[in-house]
């Protein structure tokens, strides 16, 4: 059979080419090695933690009660759930609302929009420890909420706001204008169009953003250390202090007394966050392949 592909060269031809130009081959090699390093780093960290941690995933680790002999991570898991739900309740309406304003209402080239974008970008660049300081000064001290899950949730809500905002914005932008025109043409108002037409079609993208935010909340430590604190045990109200899984992990690692349990907790935390992130990426990908 005759090969008609003109630009295709065989491996042997390419190798001969590289023999003549060793520098090019060297470049290819270091580029490949760099990529290999990045991939290996991920695989190594995940596999190492799983191998070291899985043997320590004992029923004791998931006992309902925490005490200093058995550093169960169950209360921390429950606290993480509570704080995640609280944070989402606060941040999702604001994130989606601002994205709707930016995409659907604001006029193009509006100065005000530029200011909001700049601020959101600034927010996403602020390190979590600075959020933690702010939460401590504002929610814990100035508003007298003391160190509590609520203070932690509000602090995290500000932290994940730019994430939810940006992903929602992107999702809204991908909704074709014909949807809007069709809805207006049928006599629907702007509000109705947004609620009945645009939001449902942008939902997967918004959801992917929210799940991404959940991943950040679950893994956050520095912002929570002085806002929701590191009290052990389950909370009786959201005004109580309670440690999340990530903080639990930090305390264990820092004390150095319960290394086995720390490995086990690391596995739980790592798998939780990885599953959340993969889920988010999966939903986002489904969305992009649909369009």
């Amino acid at each position: 059979m005759v090969n008609y592909a003109i630009n295709k060269i065989t491996l042997r031809q390419r190798l001969r080419e590289y023999k003549k130009k060793p520098i090019s081959f060297l470049l290819l090699l270091i580029v490949g090695l760099a990529a290999l390093f990045s991939a290996t780093a991920l695989v190594f960290i995940i596999i190492y933690i799983i191998i070291m941690g899985v043997p320590h995933l004992t029923p004791d680790l998931f006992a309902l009660k925490y005490n200093s002999d058995n550093v169960s991570c169950m209360p921390a898991i429950i606290n993480t759930l509570i704080i995640t739900v609280l944070t989402l309740i606060i941040s999702v309406p604001f994130g989606i609302g601002s994205a709707i304003y930016l995409v659907e209402y604001a006029k193009r080239g509006n100065k005000f929009v530029k200011v909001i974008r700049t601020m959101a970008e600034t927010l996403s660049g602020i390190p979590s420890i600075v959020y933690g300081l702010f939460g401590m000064l504002f929610f814990v001290t100035a508003l007298h909420w003391r160190i509590s899950l609520l203070a932690g949730a509000f602090t995290l809500a500000i932290m994940v706001l730019p994430t939810i905002m940006r992903t929602t914005e992107e999702a809204l932008i991908t909704v074709p204008d014909s949807y809007r025109e069709g809805s207006f043409g049928l006599g629907a108002g702007k509000l109705r169009t947004i609620i009945k037409i645009i939001l449902p079609s942008a939902m997967p993208g918004i959801l992917a953003g929210i799940i991404l935010a959940v991943g950040r909340i679950a893994g956050e430590t520095a912002a929570l250390l002085y806002t929701s604190g590191s009290a052990t045990g389950t909370v009786s109200s959201i005004m109580d202090s309670g440690r999340t899984l990530a903080i639990h992990m930090y305390v264990l690692a820092n004390e150095g007394l319960h290394t086995d349990q720390a490995w086990g907790t690391a596995v739980v935390l790592l798998i939780l966050v990885l599953v959340i992130n993969t889920l988010s990426a999966f939903i986002a990908k489904k969305l992009s392949s649909k369009n």
Partner: peptide
């Protein structure tokens, strides 16, 4: 996706 997952690992881990 692997490089993106690297971003998802919490800093405490």
């Amino acid at each position: 996706p692997a490089t993106e997952l690297l971003a998802g690992i919490p800093s405490i881990v």
